[in-house]
Nucleic acid binder design. Sequence first.
DNA 1: TGTACATCAGTGAACGCGCGTTCACTGATGTAC
DNA 2: TGTACATCAGTGAACGCGCGTTCACTGATGTAC
Lengths: 204, 204
Amino acid sequence: MSERKYHHGDLKNALITAGVEILSQDGVGGLSLRKVAARAGVSHAAPYAHFADKQALIAGISTEGFRRLYEKIKAVSLAYAPDPAHQLVEVAWAYVQFALADPAHFKIMVSGILEEERNYPEFVEMAQKNFQLLVELIYSGQAVGLLRSGPADLQAVSLWSLVHGFTALLIDHQISHTILEERPLKQLLIHTLNQMTCLEIPEN
Amino acid sequence: MSERKYHHGDLKNALITAGVEILSQDGVGGLSLRKVAARAGVSHAAPYAHFADKQALIAGISTEGFRRLYEKIKAVSLAYAPDPAHQLVEVAWAYVQFALADPAHFKIMVSGILEEERNYPEFVEMAQKNFQLLVELIYSGQAVGLLRSGPADLQAVSLWSLVHGFTALLIDHQISHTILEERPLKQLLIHTLNQMTCLEIPEN
DNA sequence: TGTACATCAGTGAACGCGCGTTCACTGATGTAC
DNA sequence: TGTACATCAGTGAACGCGCGTTCACTGATGTAC
């Protein structure tokens, strides 16, 4: 359908999209500039017109990941804003689902594959926006006595640690099968979240 | 000093040790069979007498990692057994220190680089021994009212999630510099652990 | 104790592969006049 | 509206590299008699 032109028009974004697809098919180890170019229907040298090197492409793909995560979490956060307990659960659940839906994309964002992150300001900015959302979650949780008081940035690190650890152990198959089989995943997540809440959230 | 013989004697372990060293120098991406063989002073085909393929070597290196982690954590756990609050803090701190001392070794154990873990029974066994130690920690914490009651295996997953998440975010540079600079790392860890304890552990 | 031989743990050459990156180039686009 | 030209975004050949794995081989070891 899309007529092939010599000039692509939006190759930069097409490469990022292609990269996301390669990641989901071949995993982190299978991501190469050449595959990404091929998938975007372009010669393997073409990406160099848009990305300085492979790291820059990885930065682009990771930034896109944080953008999608942000959109998803922001929407959920707004939808459940009136009820901080639900809000907490659903945001955490969205995080887990995001990672589960595309583990390699999640890993490349967060697993130190991108070196010298500070060289990629858009990446840093999107990562910070996500963290900021977490901090707001802490505030609303504290306001209704759901979460313990204390500096919001520290509480955010703790909450993120809990949810991120759960997610990482999960996608890397470190949680024993028997534990996972005995109840729905979301229930296990709520149980884990309940470890740091003051009020008990039902595991319905 | 060590006289070179045609038959090495303990090449299998020498290869694992060499692998650990390569990991610490070149990171996960820099680990190759050829480098490991060279480091052990042996031709690049020699490893195949002891490991079926690269994955098998990775399994060996990972298993060794879990063995070292177990020894370290076991010792700390015993040393602080009389005081569950200290025990909890020091075991968690040992986990963090282990990962910080050799991030690539830690990552290869736990980051899904080893595929089909179940094909490597020694790996599975050592990983389980570590988890079992965590479960015992939960029991002693619950006995003195430090940790919430509930199924010990679930509480163990939660605690592991918290400490693992903290560790993972840390070694992958996801925690903002400003937060890390404001206080000692161990204090931040205790603050995080305190989110899921019933009694407050001082951040001294 | 000495010899024959099977077994084992190494060697080194060779294989095919995919990779990141560079370079001289060319086709398309947009702007100045 | 038409032409000249600079700019830009592609192409395709080539580079050198390190990789995992295989294979025929050889040197050392240990056992049977």
